[in-house]
Structure formats: C-alpha cells, structure tokens
Design a protein around this nucleic acid. Structure first.
Lengths: 336, 336
DNA sequence: TTGAAAGCGCTAACAG
DNA sequence: CTGTTAGCGCTTTCAA
C-alpha cells in the first residue's frame, strides 16, 4: 500500500465529490442546508478518503474549540483519577476532547509554566481539581475570559463549581461515632487545600454541637504510610477510642499503626475513613467510610462548564451530599 | 478592569514592538537570528500584552504539533493512572502537552469513534496503553503515518514499545514460591490483553521448568471483590498451598476469601500479588509482590516516541525487569 | 442551495 | 539580520 504523504484536506474531498469547498464545510458542520444529492456525494468522498477535518484549522477560523483542559495536582490518586475519568467520559459524550495538565506544586513558577503551556491550546474551557494547594493556585491563574469550573469539597462563592459536600458528610460521620458512645473523636487530616478543610470543619462542628472536647488535629501526608506512625501515637494515648481519618488510605495506615501497637479495631479503637476507596470494603476489618462519587463530581463539573461555554443555562453550583457507609471498623467504645 | 475582547495576536506584538510579524515569530521559535535590540523590544511587547501564540495557527502552518495523545482503556486503575502520570511528566518536561482519550471497550464502533475524535487534533504522536483488549484494538487503528509507541507487559515485534517484562518477573516470583517448598502454585488471572498474558506465561514457564503440575487458571475480573469468591474456592481445595494473583487488588480479594474460609495467610496458604500497589505494604499480612514502575514505563514510552518524532535515534524497544518485593504473605508450606 | 472571495494567526520561503 | 509575500485548512461573509 502506497503511503499517503499527507492527510486528505477538505479540498481533496471537494474535488472528489465535484462540489466546492464551502459545500463540504456545510455538510461537515451541518450549519447550512445542502441538497440531498450533494450531501451524499460529499459523504461518500469523505468516507473514501478517510477524511478528518483538521481541528487546528477549525479552531483557527471559528475561534472556538472542542477541547477542554483538566488541571490537577495529581492524576493517579484515587479521588483525582476518578474525577478525571468522570470529566473525560462526560466530555467525550458531548464530542469534546480533553487535555490534562498536572501542576505538582503550588510554586508560582511551576504553576505559571503549566498554565502557560495549557493556554497555548485553543480551549473551550477549563476544569480545575481544587482538591489541594496546587489546584487552588492554578485556579487563580486562569485568565478571566476563559470559562472555568472548579471541582472541590467546599462550596465557595464567585466561581462556577461542582462540589461534594464534605463538611456535611464529615459532620454526619462524626455524629454517628459520638452516637455510638464515644466521648470524643480524634481526627487525622490529609493535606488541606486551604486553611479550611471541609472534612475537618464538619468534624469540628459535630463535636462542638455535641459539646464534646475538640482534640488537636494530627496531620498526615498523602502517603498512606504516614498514617502508621500516627496510629501508634494514637494507640499510646489511652483516651483515644475513635478516630476519623481524612481519607481511607490514611485510615488504613492508622489502623495498621494501632494494630502494631497491640490494640484491636474496633474493639479498642474505632477508625473511620473517607472516600470509600475500592479496597475499603476488603480491608480487615472492613472500613466505615463515606462514599464520595468522584466520577459523578467530574461529570457534573463538565456539564456546568458546558453550560457556561454555550451560554445555555446559568447554574453556577452543583452540590451533592456523599453518603455514609457503615462497616465494621467502628463500634461502641469498649473497656480500654 | 476592561475585559479584552480577544487574545493579543502576533501582529499586535509586532506593532507594539515596531517590528515585522516574522521577526516576532523568529524570537518566538528561536529559529533564526534576531538582533539583541529587536529581540528585547519584542520580548517586552510580549510580556506587556501577555501574548501567547496560538497553537492552532502554529500547528496549521508548521504541520507539526507539540501535543501527544495517550490512549487508554482506563484512567483510574493503579497501573494505568501511574503510566499516564509518567507520560505526562516526561512530556511536560519536553514542552509537550498531552491529550487523553479513553476507549472503554474493544467494540469496533467505540474504538473508531474514539480514535476519530483524537485524530482530528494535530498530534505529534500517540502513546497507547496496550494493557487490555481496548488498548490492543486501538493500537491497530492508528494510521500508519503517525508515530506510535505501545506500553505493555509483553514484548512484541513490529512496533515501538516500552515494556515491563512481566513474564520474567512472574517466572521469578513463581520460582521463589516453589523454592519455598510448595509443590505447585495456583494462579488467578486478571483480564488478559490477548491470548497470551505475560504474567500467566511466566508462571507457567516456572512450573514447567520445575516439573511441577500446572493447575487450571482461574479468571478474575478487574474488581478486587471478584477475588473473594475465588479465594473461598481455593481454600476449599486442600491441595492449594500457594497462589499467585495477577495483581495486588485481586490478591487482596483472594486473601479475604481465604481468611473468611477460616484459613490463615501465609500459614495455610501463601498469596502473592503483582504491581506493588501503594497499599500492598499496609495490608495484613503485608503482600509479597512485584514492583512495577509504571510511571517509569510511561516516561520511557514518551522518550521512545520523541525519538521517533524527531528522528533522533532508532531505538524501538525499552525493556525493564520489575523486581520482586518479598513480604510476609508468603512462606514455606505448613501442615494444611 | 451554491460558489467565489476573504481571512483566522502564524511560519516558511525569498529577497534584500 | 530583516521585511515582503504566500499560504497552511478551514469557515464565513456575500452574491448569485
């Protein structure tokens, strides 16, 4: 088979179909009426040549694009990966293509570089995973003329955003633990996106409104192993009977630390996580957690963006309440 | 602040700097010499206007692109997400931008649609995650003129590819288990990308060369929970003392099934996984597995692609041997 | 309904 | 070293 040197262009199609270039364009875009006869000719030519319109040329002339960018601090962590997947699926269904750009730190230079690289592309809009400081920093740098939606766990005014109401869910989970009879609930936090973190504030709210002591927050990194040491410390403190962790992976680390210290979960200490990671159910004991529909979050975010892009609709928020998943890593306090 | 209606163009910059458009282009691309004086003028104008060259226009005229596409059957599973992250980081370092397109099934129509959408973009090349049937199907559909590299676990001729030599690693792991004293090793397979699967063939090779019986393979889905039922079945068979699972998540499911059946790991049955998932180390007992550097695979794949794109170099393969990680889910066979 | 003409923002020759 | 001239592949006027 003789290798074609270049892709067929619209004028190749026009020539082959015996029509003008604009006519081919019309059947491509569907923007104007074309007689059935010519349309068939054109479609046949397109199929024969395996013609694909050049997005570059289209973007250039129409000043519009069918590409969106997703900006994320990470792409492989569970919640992030799922949210990206949700955006991608929703986008694909609407004929959009997605670019992904990772911003690994909130360092100004790095953020600038990443954003600059992204913005050279012709973009219809941007979805930012505002889950962490890099996400927050990136969001701030997006030029005002570009439609943006943020995906996050805490509602905030002034921007379009899809949220999972983490604070409400964390409050519910903490209240559940208190209801079990625990005097208070300790909290291990994952790196927060800003000063306030939904999971942490919901936890605090529940304790406060129940009149319980609010223990000092312990900070873990994103690495599940960072939970192990914290778990050991917690185990050493005899007053600790319930721990709420910022995510399931940290909860798993904390449980391991507690177990290594010779205590049992949930008999001695109850441990709850957040996210409903696919392995949470298989853990021993199965983890009480909060089911966060990250893929749904991504999908809602994309639709919000689409609305902003084509001006159909004026919704700025889409919020959803994650739901509690009660398993056996939590129980009423024992003798300890 | 008065919203600018459109982005500044190269001619705005030229006007402001008092030079011609091609001169601006020259400083942008660095393709030709420009006097220091004019260069400074141009750079100042670029900064003042916050000008960013349009990738669409550039691609159109130069027939080159700084964008690559990653085609994957999934984006959120551990190995996939890590490989994509590796590609993205390597690409960004070289000034490339990455698009991601998901092909959820090997269904011909779906693959065609996804590829078609991707190919309208101006692409420098494509990286395909050939980890599963959708990946294999997608790879077949990429037009010959586009540089492609496949990421996979099994070396194959005729295409550029970066591989993690799974067969060799699986063979090594199986041999290790046999060396512990197990009469044979059972195998739970994750959905294979084609008829032959590196992990499975390595396992078989080790058994055969040791003269051990090759038990029937059991198939799991990608869902870790699918391992649970298989674990129970395995536990019911008194001849089973060692199990090698296609990935860590399935191994975790299998371990749970075995435990639920009242047996202990590793005293009654040894279980090994594959991939070294971040939670493998925290599992109880910590999982013996094989460390697969998926991010490194992605990075190697990108560099292979880059080589093919700019014609520097003629390497077609990059192979690496994953390494065993021995932990306590495996031990010498007990009394059973 | 259709074609001719213009031009999107940029880079690639080509003179000078 | 620099400017002028073309033109990438497409969509969008504008007439007919």
């Amino acid at each position: 088979m003789a290798g074609r040197l270049r892709n067929p262009t619209i004028s190749d199609v026009a020539k082959r179909a015996g029509v003008s270039v604009p006519t081919v364009s019309r059947v491509l875009t569907g923007a104007a009426k074309v007689s059935a006869a010519k349309r068939e000719l054109v479609e046949a030519a397109i199929a024969e040549l395996d013609f694909r319109p050049s997005a570059a040329a289209r973007n250039l002339v129409s000043r519009r694009s069918q590409t969106i960018a997703v900006i994320a601090g990470n792409t492989s962590r569970y919640g992030y990966a799922e949210a990206i997947r949700g955006v991608e699926i929703a986008a694909r269904a609407e004929g959009y293509t997605v670019m992904i750009t990772v911003v690994e730190s909130a360092d100004e230079d790095e953020v600038d570089r990443a954003i600059a690289a992204t913005l050279t592309q012709a973009l219809a809009g941007v979805v930012v995973l505002k889950f962490d400081p890099p996400g927050v920093a990136a969001l701030r740098k997006i030029p005002a003329h570009l439609p943006v939606v943020a995906l996050s766990g805490t509602r905030e005014s002034g921007i379009h955003q899809a949220v999972l109401d983490e604070a409400a869910a964390a409050e519910e989970l903490t209240a559940y633990l208190l209801g079990l009879g625990h005097a208070t609930v300790h909290h291990v936090r994952v790196p927060p996106s800003r000063r306030v973190d939904g999971r942490t504030s919901g936890w605090k709210r529940a304790l406060t409104s129940a009149g319980a002591v609010v223990p000092a927050v312990r900070d873990a990194s994103w690495d599940p192993k960072s939970g192990v040491a914290i778990g050991r410390e917690l185990a050493a403190d005899r007053s600790v009977t319930a721990v709420f962790c910022g995510n399931d992976e940290i909860a798993m680390g904390v449980m391991r630390g507690i177990t290594e210290a010779g205590l049992r979960v949930p008999e001695d200490v109850s441990v709850a996580g957040f996210d409903d990671h696919p392995l949470a159910e298989l853990w021993s004991p199965p983890l009480t957690t909060v089911d966060q529909d990250f893929a749904g979050l991504g999908s809602r975010g994309f639709h919000l963006l689409l609305q902003a892009v084509d001006g159909t609709g004026d919704r700025r928020f889409s919020s959803e309440l994650p739901k509690l998943v009660l398993r056996s890593s939590t129980a009423a306090p024992g003798s300890r």
